[in-house]
Structures are given as C-alpha cells and as structure tokens.
Amino acid sequence: MNNNYDKIANHYDTLSRLVFFKSQVNAQVNQLPYIPKDSSILIAGGGTGWILEEISRIHPDRLKIVYVEISAKMLALSQKRDYKNNQVEFLNMGIEDFNTDVLFDVVLTPFLFDNFAEERAAKVFQQLNGCLKRDGLWFIVDFSLNKVNGNWWKWLLLKSMYCFFKLLGIVEANQLVNMNPYFLHTGYQIVEQRFYYRSFIKAVIYRK
C-alpha cells in the first residue's frame, strides 16, 4: 500500500466532484493568486494535473514547476494538460523519494497529508520544509476535523472514504493527521486560511 491512485486515476476527478462538488477545486484555485511571478514551484501529489491549467491562467509563462506524482496514470494525464509556456518537470515517484538541492518559492501539497500515517507525514513535512526558501509560501489543502467543526456526518464521511480506499489498497492512513502544529512549531506564519464544504475542507497558506 503506497498511496498510489492508479486504480482510480481515470475516475478520480469525477468521483471527487460527485461527493464534494467543486469544493476541492475551489479550495486550491483560490490560493493560486498568491503565486509570485517568475517563481519556482514544487507540486507534491498533483493528481490528474488540472491544477497546472489553473496556474497557467494566472501565469502563462516564466514559471518553473516540478511536478511529483506517484501514480503513473495520474502523471500521464497531467502531461497532457495545457500549461502554456511554463516549464514543467514531471517526476513519477512518491514525494518521500524526491531529493533535490533546489529551493522553491512555493510548495503545493493538495490533499497529500491525509494519505499518510503520522510518522510518514512528519518525515514528509521535514523533507518539504527543507525544499522551501525562507519567506517561501506553502499551500496546503486537506480535510479538517476538530471539536469545533467535527460534526457527525464529517466523521462518518471520512471513515467511509478511508474504508473505500483501504479496500482498494490505496492509502496507508486510518485517520487524519493535524499538520498545523508542525507548521507553527517550525515558525511558519498563516497568510490566509479558508474553509469549504461546511468546514470539512481547509485551505491554508503558510509563509516560512
């Protein structure tokens, strides 16, 4: 089980929209105006790549993007996207296997950490933290549960999602890991925080 979505790559976007409508999309798209011009971007777990087209609507050129995706089928779909004149390097690997000496201006982790058990999530956080420049931006979108917004239907839906993905042998996680303490303890500051789908989806922009 390696958090690989090959089995449902061709249907993933349709399934997510059936359940969450455009909430997952909006949560990511609304962050994109914060991307600086001429920046270098690391996208970890970008899925089918529709985000590349949305980024290119704002910045049609002069971006350098490294796109890391463990699913070969997801990556193949991503490579067919229209990312205008931006430079995109596609890498078929798990983000935990990604190594580079390059420091990025922006890191995107859309619905990445909800796949990991806490030990791996902590390691991936430290790894990506090392890839981000000082004053760089980290865009994170994930599911959110807590005492304030943890309504029963959210717990039930999340449990059903994990059971579904477990049956397919896709994800290792059994529960959400709250990543916010990792950011705050490392000295990140929250630039913007928004909630979607009745606060079940949280989108945060952190500055290092």
Rank of each mutant, 00 (worst) to 15 (best):
E118L: 10
E69K: 06
Y34F: 10
K80M: 09
I43L: 08
V191K: 11
R62V: 00
V68A: 05
P36W: 02
P60S: 14
R194H: 09
N3E: 13
V66H: 14
L157K: 14
I170G: 11
E89M: 11
G169K: 07
R62W: 06
L32W: 02
N178K: 10
W152R: 08
D105N: 09
S16W: 00
H59G: 09
D61M: 12
Q87K: 13
N129H: 14
R207N: 06
K208D: 01
I65G: 04
Y197C: 01
N174R: 11
F113R: 05
L145H: 10
P60N: 14
Q175P: 00
P36M: 05
D6T: 03
F195C: 04
L184T: 09
A27Q: 02
V19S: 07
N129Y: 03
Q28I: 02
K166D: 08
V88A: 10
R57A: 14
L156H: 15
C163R: 11
N85E: 15
F195N: 09
P60Y: 11
I65F: 04
L108A: 04
V66P: 03
F21Q: 13
K147F: 04
R134A: 03
M161F: 15
L18W: 10
L108T: 00
N30Q: 10
F139Q: 08
N4F: 01
I140K: 10
K73W: 01
F200G: 04
S39V: 00
P33S: 06
A76M: 12
M74Y: 02
Q193R: 12
S40D: 03
L75K: 12
Q28H: 01
L75T: 07
N146W: 06
R207C: 07
I41D: 04
N99R: 14
S23E: 14
R198C: 03
F200I: 02
F111R: 07
L77I: 09
P36R: 01
A9T: 00
E69Y: 05
G169V: 07
L77R: 13
L128M: 15
V25S: 03
V107D: 03
D82H: 12
D114E: 15
F200L: 12
I190K: 06
W138Y: 03
K80N: 08
L137P: 01
E69H: 07
G46S: 08
I51T: 08
A9S: 11
K123T: 09
I65N: 03
N149V: 13
F165S: 11
L184N: 05
S16A: 11
K80G: 01
F116G: 10
I55A: 13
F195A: 02
D101P: 00
R17C: 05
I51S: 14
K64P: 00
I55M: 15
G49V: 05
Y12N: 06
Y5D: 10
K159W: 12
N26C: 01
K166W: 11
R134D: 10
L112Y: 09
I35D: 01
I95R: 14
K208V: 03
K166N: 05
V106G: 06
V177S: 15
I140N: 15
E96W: 08
K208C: 00
L15Q: 10
R120F: 01
Q175N: 08
F90Y: 15
